[in-house]
Structure formats: C-alpha cells, structure tokens
Design a protein around this nucleic acid. Sequence first.
DNA 1: CAGGATCCCAGAGGATACTG
DNA 2: CAGTATCCTCTGGGATCCTG
Lengths: 125, 125
Amino acid sequence: MENRMVPEERMTAQACSGHLASVEDAIYVIGGKWKLKIIIVLQESGNIRFNELQRKVEGISARVLSNELKDLELNGFVKRVVHAEQTPVVVEYVSTDYSRTLKPVIGALAEWGKTHKIKIKEEMS
Amino acid sequence: MENRMVPEERMTAQACSGHLASVEDAIYVIGGKWKLKIIIVLQESGNIRFNELQRKVEGISARVLSNELKDLELNGFVKRVVHAEQTPVVVEYVSTDYSRTLKPVIGALAEWGKTHKIKIKEEMS
DNA sequence: CAGGATCCCAGAGGATACTG
DNA sequence: CAGTATCCTCTGGGATCCTG
C-alpha cells in the first residue's frame, strides 16, 4: 500500500523535456499490474460491488483488490459508496470524474497494445 | 481481439473488453519501473553509451539497466550498436523506429502526470 | 457479501565488487 | 568503459482461512 504521492522537486541538471519526470509521476500513481485495469473496469461498469468487480478483473485476489481499491480511493480515482439503509449493507464502488481524466492515457495504451499484438502475431507467422 | 476498437466515446461492451485486454498487453511489454523511462531518455539522446545512459536514468543500477536493455532490445525498442573498429570498443544504444510508435503513449502519460502533479500541489496548499 | 488476518513466495530490484 | 557476478532485501501478490 502506497500513500498519496507527494511531488518533490526533481531538479536534475539535464531534466530533458520534463517528459521524463511527468511520466515518472504518472507511473508512480497508476503504475503496477492492476490499477489501470481496475479503473477501466470501473469506468465500464458504473456502480459495481466488490465480488462482481473481482470477477471482472480476472485473476485478482480479494486481498489485492481490497488494497488496490483503498489506494485508488486515496488518490481520488474511485469512490466507495455504502448503502447503510439496506441489510445486509451494500457497498458499491464508482469511478470518479477524476478517473475520467485518464481517458487519453487509457486510449493511447489500448491503441498501442492492440497494434503491438498484431505486430507480434505477424512476426510469428 | 479482432473487434474494432474506437478509442473515443461510446463503446460497446465488446470494445471495452478489448480495451482492457489491449491495455494489459501494453503494460506487459512496457510496464515496470524503468522501461518507459529508458525509452524516453533514449529517444531524447540519440546515440548514447551505457554509462551516460545510466547517469541520465537516475537511480538505476548497472545490473538492472543491463537487464532492461536486453529486454528492450528483444522487443525491438532499442538497438545495440557496436563500433568494433575503435579501441577500446565503443558500444552505443539507439532507439528504434518502433520505439517511436510509443510517442502517443508517452505524450498522454506525460501530460496526465503533469496536471496530476499540479492538482496534488494545489490540494496541499 | 465484503473484506480482514496470516502465511508465504518469487522475482524485481539495490549494493558492491570485479573484469576484459 | 561496458558490463557481470554475487548477494541480499523488499514487496507485490497468491493461497487460505476467518468474520460481521
């Protein structure tokens, strides 16, 4: 479990175009094996409950999903909604507006991943 | 994964699962702590030698850099150029055309990382 | 159902030293 | 300079069981 990212001033002599530091920041928050996948599923699903989410993010364990959700909530990508008026209590997860700012990133990654897979397939034939 | 993917708005459920899988593919190849950073430095540097590369990718050890470079070379993102005519032998690394197909991904990530950092800073003040 | 508590492991990655 | 070789740490993450 990470905490919130606290940006430091990285004043490297050759800070390049700044792309490097920004990409680093991005990777710090949404990097890892699961975060983007969870975000995508959440965006596709609207409100969704824990177990269904676990089913849709294939391969993830309850423990890891729980940890990732806490992390994503801390960073404002997902909101945990508890419906206390019902019994048993229903918990739902919803993607936030802020998570939608990741659309370009997800779009670019998906597009690249798609063409990359095609390239790999061609190389194997 | 043969379904058409529209990177923009309104997607079908199938396009979405394709989205998920494609992002997964992308993360598989360019995920991790160092790969994208190395690729960025490589793209910004033209030809570059091992030790200088290590200096520019701050914090990376020689062992890890060596491993990552092998991996990146296998996947066609970097070319290892040996100038055997010189003594001592000079080795240079160059980013490939294929690595340039990552530009949109890097651009999106950098842009998002930049605004995210600004957002975090504002929240702290 | 929605997780928490434990235990455990592989593998990513760091530190240091060494070599052709 | 361009890496290798060791060794070692750390943590992401799997498996399993437990509970309100």
